[in-house]
C-alpha cells in the first residue's frame, strides 16, 4: 500500500493547458475520485500518475518517492482502462497471467494467483475464453482481476463503469466498493458521473479546466461547495443561484419547499410561480420563476414524494428556504463568502 501525491503538476499539449498546477495527496488506502466533465484534465492527470504521460512540470510521488523518471512498469501501479484494454489474442487466463509473466513468476505460482484473482471476481469459469466471447460486465471483471493479480500499491481506474448498462453499473459500483474496502489498496478513480463519485469516493476532487476546484468528502463538496462551479456541477438538478445585491445566493432544489412543509420556520416567504412540473415518482421537480421582491429568475424546486401538497403549473405559491441551507458566493470570483441575511440582499 502507498500514497500518491502530485506537486504543482502541469501538462500542456501545444497551447492547450490540460492540467494546470494540481496539488493532490491521497491518504493510505483511500478511495479518491477525480470528478469533472470531459476535457477537464482528469484523465490526463491519471495518465501522468501512471507514467503514460510526461508532466510538463511538477512532480508525481508514489509512496513518498518521486517517480517522474520511472517508466509505468516500475511504479507498482495497476490501471483499468475505460475500454478495459484486454489483450484480444489471449484467453482470460493469459490476460490475467500477463503481469505475472512479466515478473517471471513460476508457472505453478502464476496458476494459483490467477485462480485467486479470478475467484475474487467470480470469473473462474471464464478462464479459457477469449475477450470477444465475454459480455461487457465480464470483460470489466477480467480487467479488474488483471489489475489485482500482482497486488499493486496503487489502483488507477479510468471510468471503468462507463461502458456498462445502467442496471449493471449500479451492482458493479457496489462490488467495486466492497472489493476496494476488502483489499484496502489506495485507489484513484476517474469519472464524469457524479452519482458514481458520491457513492464510491472517500474523497472527491472536483476538477475544471485542469485545476482542482475543491477536494473533500462527498458531504463536504455537496453541502459546502467551495465555489459556484462546484455548486452547479454537483447535484441534479444543480444548486439554484440568485443574484443578490453584493453576492450570489445559492440553495439546493431540495431545500426550496412550500411554506406548509416548514410550519415552524421563521424564514421569509419567497414567492414562486410554477411554470412546469415534472413527476419523477420519488420526487416532483418544479420549474418556475421567482417574483418580487426577488429578481425574476428561473429556479428549480425538488419536492420529495413525502411532501404531498398539491401544486399546479401557472399558479403562484409561497416557498421558503431555511437560513442554514443558504450558501453565499462572491459575485465576481465565485468563491464562498460569509453568510448574511437573505432579506437584506433583495430589499
Amino acid at each position: 500500500m502507498a500514497t500518491v501525491e502530485t506537486r504543482n503538476i502541469r501538462k500542456s499539449f501545444g497551447s492547450v493547458q490540460a492540467v494546470n498546477g494540481v496539488d493532490l495527496s491521497t491518504k493510505e488506502g483511500e478511495f479518491l475520485v477525480l470528478l469533472g466533465s470531459s476535457g477537464c484534465g482528469k484523465t490526463t492527470l491519471l495518465r501522468m500518475i501512471a507514467g503514460l504521460e510526461k508532466p510538463t512540470s511538477g512532480e508525481v510521488l508514489i509512496a513518498g518517492e518521486v517517480v517522474n523518471e520511472m517508466p509505468p512498469r516500475a511504479r507498482k501501479i495497476a490501471m483499468v482502462f475505460q475500454s478495459y484494454a484486454l489483450y484480444p489474442h489471449m484467453t482470460v487466463f493469459k490476460n490475467i497471467a500477463f503481469p505475472l509473466k512479466a515478473q517471471r513468476m513460476g508457472t505453478e505460482a502464476i496458476r494459483q494467483k490467477v485462480e485467486w484473482a479470478a475467484g475474487l471476481f467470480g470469473i473462474e469459469l471464464l478462464l479459457h475464453r477469449k475477450p470477444r466471447q465475454l459480455s461487457g460486465g465480464e470483460r470489466q471483471r477480467v480487467a479488474l482481476a488483471r489489475a489485482v493479480v500482482r497486488e499493486p500499491a496503487v489502483f488507477l481506474l479510468d471510468e471503468p463503469l462507463s461502458n456498462l448498462d445502467a442496471k449493471l453499473r449500479a451492482s458493479a459500483r457496489d462490488e467495486l466498493q466492497q472489493f476496494q474496502r476488502r483489499i484496502g489498496t489506495t485507489t484513484i478513480y476517474v469519472t464524469h458521473d457524479q452519482v458514481e463519485a458520491m457513492g464510491l469516493g472517500d474523497r472527491i476532487a472536483v476538477m475544471q479546466h485542469g485545476k482542482v476546484r475543491q477536494i473533500g468528502t462527498p458531504m463536504e463538496v455537496y453541502d459546502e461547495p467551495a465555489d459556484t462551479f462546484v455548486a452547479a456541477f454537483l447535484g441534479s438538478p444543480p444548486m439554484n443561484l440568485m443574484e443578490g445585491k453584493d453576492c450570489l445566493v445559492g440553495f439546493r432544489p431540495e431545500h426550496f419547499l412550500p411554506k406548509e412543509a416548514f410550519p415552524m420556520t421563521g424564514a421569509a416567504p419567497v414567492p414562486f410561480r410554477v411554470t412546469r412540473l415534472e413527476y419523477l415518482g420519488a420526487d416532483r421537480l418544479l420549474y418556475g420563476v421567482l417574483e418580487r421582491p426577488f429578481p425574476e429568475q428561473k429556479v428549480i424546486a425538488r419536492l420529495p414524494s413525502t411532501v404531498s401538497i398539491p401544486i399546479q403549473p401557472g399558479e403562484r405559491y409561497e416557498f421558503v428556504v431555511q437560513e442554514k441551507d443558504l450558501r453565499f458566493f462572491d459575485r465576481d470570483a465565485g468563491h464562498r463568502t460569509e453568510a448574511r441575511p437573505l432579506v437584506a440582499q433583495f430589499a
Binding site: A50, L52, I77, M79, Q82, S83, A85, P88, A102
Partner: peptide, 25 residues
C-alpha cells in the same frame, strides 16, 4: 493505444509491449 499502454503498466517496456501485444495482433 490502450492495449500497449496496459502492457506497459503490466510490466513491459514499449518494445516488450510491441513484441507481446502489437505483433501478434
Amino acid at each position: 493505444r490502450d492495449l500497449e499502454e496496459a502492457a506497459m503498466i503490466d510490466g513491459y517496456s514499449r518494445l516488450g509491449a510491441f513484441a507481446k501485444i502489437v505483433m501478434p495482433i
